[in-house]
Nucleic acid binder design. Structure first.
Length: 824
RNA sequence: GCGGCGGUGAUGGAAUGGUAGACAUGGCGGCCUCAAAAGCCGCUGUCCCUCGGGGACGUGUGGGUUCGAAUCCCACCCGCCGUACCA
């Protein structure tokens, strides 16, 4: 008869069937149901269902599942839901190519994800499952849009926006990467279009400040801080006397105002043509502006691009010096930031310096270091307390930082400026000229203008269309029956908004819907949402550090301001997982041919081995290359554990794995190791160093095998403990082994407690150092007094050999650990 | 430029001021076998010596703090990520 083998193919479906039939992971919304237990909301970022799940999904959900299980077994009432971010461009582009309705391909992909999650044994509360393309969900996305509209947080305006010529849609700033479309990689163009925006800039300060109060990785907070880009400075007015117009500029260096020798406007500045009117070079100015507007963003923003521009033939007054300084138009000034115009201080700004060089303008030094030379051939940028103002009228001689304040005060008194703060963050452009998204619930009436769809009429359903091809306006515009409606106000003729929402709108509130997912009276019940939220542990890829995570924070703040939520931040703690790279250490991609698909891995080695391996491979926040041989090593470990369970379980009658009362040396070693492992795994799960948690279970299993003749009761206890500790990572085999040994269900058992008495043996190995170098190791009794340890060390062979008659200056004793003898 | 993170054996990594290299992969050797696979056991940082033992060196580089530093501090080098005519 062949020896019994570990067969995940049999074990895993067995347990999955039980969890599914008994709805083991469903939780009620009633806090009373928790019997006083603390709540915990563990959430992985919802997947975008396109094709089949990939290995990154397995990592994401293996991680989240380990945390969810750990929280459950440590007595918390755990919400762990799942859903799908189902609207979006890939499904629509697929539809354009094949004619298959995006709903069909999306639903097929969702089915593949559901199947995968079940075969991976992820502990999901399926009663809360949602998908953002279902009318039951997007009805409330539309409702939130209307709430934002009511508060003027959703608005329409014409602006220079980013347009992708390939996808034929506008994009949010955040979706433009290096001047290219995030989706298709084509160069993005600038276009002047009327679009829908969310007023996220109203929240810039709060989005920045409250980063200090959430447990997020430092680099993610840093990315958000950079993106928000708060700059303190002043707004200063430069007056064009000829035309009687005041032009404000924003500057972070008001201390350099005396050095402003010219003035530059962005090509998009609405006053450029007016200023150019009747000038000798009017044509040249028009030509320059038009070229700037049609230039791709990538070209315009190129790093080493020489400064270009055209003089406007007019002047403004420098408010400090009263001098008339020339005006220019140049594409290095951006309309979207500050006021669309800048003062040129060539001595103290590198870009202004380059511009002044190109146009032969005066470079006037107004800040100087207290000692040392000024840099040659470039602007002097430093701004510290070690500089003083020069050539600055009454302010000359002041330290730069004091001078800055004094100048701002002066401007304020004279009515020529004031302290000001500028943000890099722009409002969120949310409309898209595409089909597969949530319709914007607005109607345009010939008489009443823009009218919100009444709440009772929600959802505005996405109609079916024949042709998904984008033509510069939404494919929905072709659905005439749908577009033409009666005005909700006057019953007159009206047309629906045909743009759809950015899919990031859908995913900015899904975590709220999970709390009360089956509510068809409201988006959520505030009591229920306030109970479950915030998300206690959010897990996902770092690629969402800016977009999704910023938008979701904005939504929660806006909804809280409306009294709809009782908290300010959605995600109390965030964990960003690293990527799984191909076996070659490169990012997985079809073109490289290094893609590892989870399905065959799970079929061959089992979900437990795949999940364990992915968590064991290294710290989960780091990237890691796939290695089949390492995976095989994890599989070997699971096989050995299973064999131990099989061997010890069948010899146990009746089943049981209690810690034996008395034990010999062998048994004690095994029991001690079990308690040691409990502590290590608990710590690893708390700190999310899951790789070390799994290695602790491996060590425990090694120890059990190292003592084949120990009391079987002790070995059963230790093996059951190993299974119990492994459950968050490999739930199927853990359930199986635990059942073999005890007849009980491991997930119904409390998390084991380490007995402090078992964490220490009667003796320990005393490290004996001389001048910090290890010279010997001797056995010493645990808890021995310092004097004894000192004596043992001094008498040890290794220490004696190194004393060599030299003077002992000092002896440092670390109880239960080491002695360091310091000699001269 | 600015911001963030990191640099430890052949490889992935461990070590939260106290034995550097846990655990695993790979490699080498052995057991089992007619053989292979599987399984099991042992060794495996570098160098040196008088080799059943012992010593020196060793966590990117150079300093510092400390009885003791991979860990803390300073300077530098290298790498990765984000961001960038943001005034």
């Amino acid at each position: 008869m062949p020896p019994p083998r570990y067969e995940p193919g049999t074990i895993e479906p067995k347990w999955q069937e039980i969890w599914s039939r008994e709805r083991t992971w469903e939780v009620a919304n009633d806090p009373a149901d928790a019997h006083g237990a603390e709540k915990s909301y563990v959430l992985e970022m919802l997947p975008y269902p396109s094709g089949e799940p990939h290995i990154g999904h397995l990592k994401n959900y293996a991680l989240g599942d380990a945390i969810a299980h750990f929280h459950r077994r440590t007595g918390r009432h755990v919400l762990h839901p799942m859903g799908y971010d189902a609207f979006g461009l890939p499904a629509e582009n697929h539809a354009i190519k094949t004619g298959v309705h995006p709903r069909k391909s999306t639903d097929e992909s969702i089915a593949a994800f559901q199947q995968a999650f079940r075969s991976w044994g992820i502990s999901i509360d399926w009663s809360r499952e949602l998908a953002t393309h279902e009318p039951e969900y997007y009805r409330w996305t539309q409702w939130i849009f209307l709430k934002l509209f009511e508060r003027d947080l959703a608005y329409r305006k014409e602006a220079a926006v980013k347009w992708c010529p390939f996808d034929q849609t506008v994009l949010a700033n955040e979706q433009v990467i290096d001047g290219r479309c995030e989706r298709c990689g084509n160069e993005v163009e600038a276009r002047q279009l009327e679009q829908w925006f969310f007023r996220i800039t109203d929240y810039a300060d709060r989005l920045l400040d409250e980063l200090d109060h959430i447990e997020w990785p430092e680099h993610v907070k840093a990315m958000q801080r950079n993106w928000i880009g708060r700059s303190e400075g002043a707004e200063v007015v430069f007056r064009c006397e000829e035309l009687n117009i005041d032009y404000p500029v924003f500057t972070t260096r008001p201390d350099t105002l005396f050095g402003a020798t010219f003035f530059v406007m962005a090509p998009e500045h609405p006053d450029v043509f007016r200023l150019a009117q009747g000038r000798a070079n009017e044509d040249e100015i028009h030509h320059y502006v038009n070229r700037s507007l049609t230039e791709s963003l990538e070209e315009r923003g190129a790093q080493d691009k020489p400064k270009t521009g055209v003089a406007l033939g007019r002047t403004v007054t420098n408010p400090m010096t009263g001098e008339q300084i020339p005006m220019f138009v140049s594409d290095y000034v951006l309309m979207e930031y500050g006021t669309g115009a800048v003062m040129g201080v060539p001595a103290h700004d590198q870009r202004d310096y380059e511009f002044a060089q190109a146009f032969d303008l005066e470079i006037r030094q107004v800040v100087a270091p207290e000692e040392g030379e000024l840099p040659e051939g470039q602007a002097f940028l430093a701004h510290t307390e070690n500089e003083r103002l020069i050539n600055s009228g009454e302010f000359t001689g002041l330290p730069a930082n004091e001078g800055m304040q004094a100048i701002v005060d002066w401007l304020d008194r004279e009515g020529k400026g004031h302290a000001s703060v500028s943000f890099r963050l722009r409002d969120w452009l949310v409309s898209r000229q595409r089909y597969w998204g949530c319709p914007i619930p607005i109607i345009y009436c010939e008489d009443c203008g823009m009218v919100p769809v009444p709440e009772a009429d929600l959802p505005v359903r996405l109609p079916d269309v024949e042709d998904y091809q984008p033509k510069g306006k939404s494919p929905l515009a072709a659905a005439e029956d749908w577009v033409n409606v009666r005005c909700p106000n006057c019953r007159g003729r009206a047309r629906r908004e045909t743009d759809t929402m950015d899919t990031f709108v859908d995913s900015s509130w899904y975590f709220l819907r999970y709390c009360d997912a089956r509510d068809d009276e409201a988006a959520w019940d505030r009591k229920i949402v306030d109970y479950w939220m915030q998300v206690d542990q959010y897990i996902g890829g770092v690629e969402h550090a800016i977009l999704h995570l910023m938008y979701a924070r904005f939504f929660v703040k806006a909804l809280a301001d409306m009294g709809l939520l009782g908290f300010q931040e959605p995600f109390r703690a965030l964990f960003t997982q690293g990527m799984i790279l191909g076996p070659d250490g490169q990012k997985m991609s079809k073109s490289r041919g290094n893609v590892i698909s989870p399905t065959p891995i799970v079929e061959r080695y089992g979900a437990d081995a795949a999940r364990c391996y992915i968590l064991f491979i290294g710290p989960p926040d780091q990237d890691a290359a796939w290695s089949e041989s390492s995976l095989n090593g994890v599989h070997t470990f699971l096989s050995r554990l299973w064999r131990l369970g099989d061997e010890l379980g069948s010899s146990s009658d009746p089943p049981g794995a209690e810690q034996p009362e008395s034990a010999d040396a062998d048994a004690l070693a095994v029991i001690r190791k079990a308690h040691w492992a409990i502590e290590k795994v608990t710590d690893g799960l708390s700190r999310l160093t899951l790789n070390t948690a799994i290695s602790a279970v491996m060590e425990l299993r090694n120890e059990i095998s190292r003592h084949p003749d120990a009391d079987p009761a002790a070995r059963r206890f230790a093996t059951a403990t190993a299974a119990s500790l492994l459950f968050p990572f490999a739930p199927h085999i853990a359930s199986e082994v635990y059942e073999l040994l005890t007849g009980r269900r491991v997930w119904e058992e409390p998390w084991p407690d380490a007995d402090p008495a078992m964490l220490q043996a009667e003796t320990f190995e005393l490290v004996c150092q001389v001048n910090g170098k290890v010279r010997d190791r001797v056995t010493a009794p645990t808890g021995a007094p310092r004097e004894l340890l000192e004596q043992l060390a001094l008498e040890s062979r290794g220490v004696k050999a190194h004393l060599d008659g030299r003077e002992v200056v000092k002896v440092v004793v670390v109880p239960d650990k080491l002695v360091n003898v310091v000699i001269r």
